Simulated scan of single mutants.
Amino acid sequence: MLIRVEIPIDAPGIDALLRRAFSRDAEAALIRDLREDGLLTLGVVATDDEGQVVGYAAFSPVAVEGEELQWVALAPLAIDEHYRGQGLGSQLVYEGLDSLNEFGYAAVVTLGEPAFYSRLGFEPAARYGLRCRWPGAEAAFQLRALADDALSGVSGHVEYQDHFNRL
């Protein structure tokens, strides 16, 4: 198993994984569109011994109340069904967080299962007065600060890229 930053040749494998993992085309289309529009901050892949993509984590820019603060969203996170339950999702997220921290990003937000993401250091965003556009997502909307001052004086609406409105 190899975990690394995605490269252009990975795109077809990422697309196939997202279609399998989500049983629909929306997430694959989201990543394709973000990539084409230059809005994919970071993609992290896991490949098996044959080089096939079996895991993927994507990060794209978000704004808070219209202000760019070097924050990104983690979405989607996908693991091939044959590799689930082995910690691969956590490894992908940690690799992404480490890279983003090195690049100077301040925080990461995500919509996901609180039990999973809390183990990775994410906290409810509502605790900091932050919300997203999707009603009823308060419990799933979480964040992890990467910089010490990431949350200083920040609150309000976290704005994902318009591409996410098509999901």
Rank of each mutant, 00 (worst) to 15 (best):
Pro8Arg: 12
Asp10Lys: 03
Ala11His: 13
Ala11Thr: 12
Ala11Ser: 14
Asp15Ser: 12
Asp15Pro: 04
Leu17Lys: 02
Arg19Phe: 11
Arg19Thr: 06
Arg20Asn: 15
Ala21Arg: 00
Phe22Tyr: 06
Ser23Cys: 14
Arg24Ala: 15
Asp25Ile: 15
Ala26Tyr: 13
Ala26Trp: 12
Ala29Ser: 12
Ala29Phe: 08
Ile31Asp: 02
Arg35Asp: 09
Asp37Tyr: 14
Leu40Ser: 02
Leu40Arg: 02
Gly43Asp: 08
Gly43Ala: 12
Val44Leu: 10
Val44Trp: 04
Val44Gln: 04
Val44Asn: 03
Asp48Trp: 02
Asp48Ile: 03
Gly51Phe: 06
Gly51Ile: 05
Gln52Ile: 12
Val53Pro: 00
Val54Asn: 06
Val54Ile: 11
Gly55Arg: 00
Ala57Gly: 08
Ala57Leu: 07
Ala57Arg: 03
Phe59Asp: 05
Val62Pro: 00
Val64Ala: 13
Val64Glu: 10
Glu67Ala: 14
Glu67Gly: 05
Glu67Trp: 06
Glu67Cys: 13
Trp71Leu: 11
Ala75Val: 04
Ile79Ala: 09
Asp80Gly: 04
His82Lys: 11
Gly87Met: 11
Gly89Met: 09
Ser90Met: 06
Leu92Phe: 08
Val93His: 03
Val93Phe: 06
Tyr94Ile: 15
Tyr94Trp: 15
Glu95Phe: 15
Gly96Tyr: 08
Asp98Asn: 15
Leu100Asp: 06
Leu100Trp: 06
Ala107Tyr: 04
Val108Glu: 03
Val108Tyr: 08
Glu113Ile: 13
Phe116Lys: 04
Tyr117Ser: 02
Tyr117Lys: 01
Ser118Cys: 08
Arg119His: 06
Arg119Cys: 07
Glu123Asn: 01
Ala126Gln: 09
Arg127His: 12
Leu130Asp: 01
Leu130Ile: 05
Leu130Phe: 00
Arg131Trp: 13
Arg131Gln: 14
Arg131Pro: 05
Cys132His: 04
Arg133His: 14
Arg133Ser: 15
Gly136Phe: 06
Gly136Cys: 07
Ala137Asp: 10
Glu138Arg: 06
Glu138Thr: 04
Ala139Trp: 02
Phe141Trp: 02
Arg144Asn: 11
Arg144Gln: 13
